[in-house]
């Protein structure tokens, strides 16, 4: 078991003929992910790498291939349109990798998604992976841009706002021999589809997830919200790391969402809230694996 996706999930790629979309669709296929369709307007009838059919619209792709999940690689100015196209087509899940989407576009998207059944992960995220049992964790479901081989099938759920920092955590786990159930990158933007809390609720209910790592960063309050919920309802041990203890206020640290404003969203505040909820805090980014391992003993 796992959350959101598994090896049978049928996926379509929006922007499959673009440079990023093509490269990563290839990597996902090699990993064993069921990429069943691609969408690029005007290129219907083509075949990606000779096997994946390309459609003009998401609706056509869904009707033809019964894909239920989409991964979006289209450039930022067109990403809001692509996400909502997937929502309208009734997909269960849209994973948006694209970074640099205007905040107001995401405000509109989020408003338009109210009451719809589709879940959005991202944008500006590495994606979702449920590792498989093959060599280098292949045979699972990789939807996104993370390197597959750093993962290992197992029972730790990972949720994070950051890309490479997640790889760091996953690699520390794998190096210690600890595998992962599902790793979800929720993205570094101030408006995103799914919060830390929502992923943690899913991991909490997943029988194959035995422990959770939450990786947060400065800005916003989603880590605090998750901590409050965990204190009340958490059934599993949780380890966490918050990046940005040394970040100066008022400066955006790369991610649009990583900014301390009005004295809110500091690492110290978040760490306090997490500790209050009984979450084990990794003192440095080098100790995330060890901190989680200590909870499993």
């Amino acid at each position: 078991m796992s959350i959101l996706v598994d090896s049978s999930t049928r996926i379509l790629v929006q922007g499959i003929t673009g440079k990023a979309g093509g490269f990563h669709a290839h990597q996902c296929l090699e990993y064993g992910t069921q990429i069943v369709a691609g969408v690029t307007p005007g290129k219907a009838g083509e075949k990606f790498e000779g096997k994946v059919p390309v459609f003009n619209t998401v609706q056509d792709a869904v009707a033809e291939t019964h894909a239920t999940v989409s991964v979006v690689f289209v450039p930022a100015p067109f990403a809001a349109d692509a996400i909502l196209e997937g929502v309208e087509a009734g997909l269960a899940l849209v994973v948006c990798i694209t970074e640099g989407i205007p905040v107001n576009d995401m405000v509109r998207v989020k408003r338009a998604m109210q009451g719809k059944k589709t879940r959005l992960i991202g944008p500006n995220c590495p994606g979702i992976i449920t590792p498989g049992s093959g060599k280098d964790s292949t045979g699972g479901c990789k939807i996104g841009i993370m390197p597959g081989y750093i993962h290992k099938k197992g029972n730790v759920g990972v949720v994070s706002r950051s890309g490479t920092l997640t790889y760091e955590a996953v690699w520390q786990l794998t190096s210690l021999g600890i595998g992962q159930s599902t790793c979800v990158g929720i993205g570094g933007d101030p408006v995103n589809g799914t919060s830390h809390l929502e992923v943690i609720q899913m991991l909490n209910d997943d029988p194959d997830t035995h422990a959770i790592i939450m990786i947060g960063e400065i800005g916003g309050t989603t880590e605090e919200e998750a901590a409050r919920w965990i204190k009340e309802h958490g059934k599993k041990p949780v380890a966490a790391f918050i990046a940005g203890s040394t970040a100066p206020p008022g400066r955006r640290m790369g991610h649009a969402g990583a900014i301390i404003s009005g004295g809110k969203g500091t690492a110290a505040e978040k760490i306090k809230a997490l500790r209050d909820a009984g979450i084990a805090i990794s003192p440095t980014p080098s100790d995330m694996g060890k901190t989680l391992a200590a909870l499993l003993k």
Binding site: S160, R161, S162, G163, T164, L165, T166, E168, G188, I215, E217, I218, F241, A243, G244, S245, T246, A247, M253, G254, H255, A258, A267, P283, T284, P285, S286
Partner: peptide
Amino acid sequence: MVNGAGLAMSTMDIIQH
């Protein structure tokens, strides 16, 4: 010099640590 914003922030943090 780091790749990725989260890892870059974390690298600053661990230097200070």
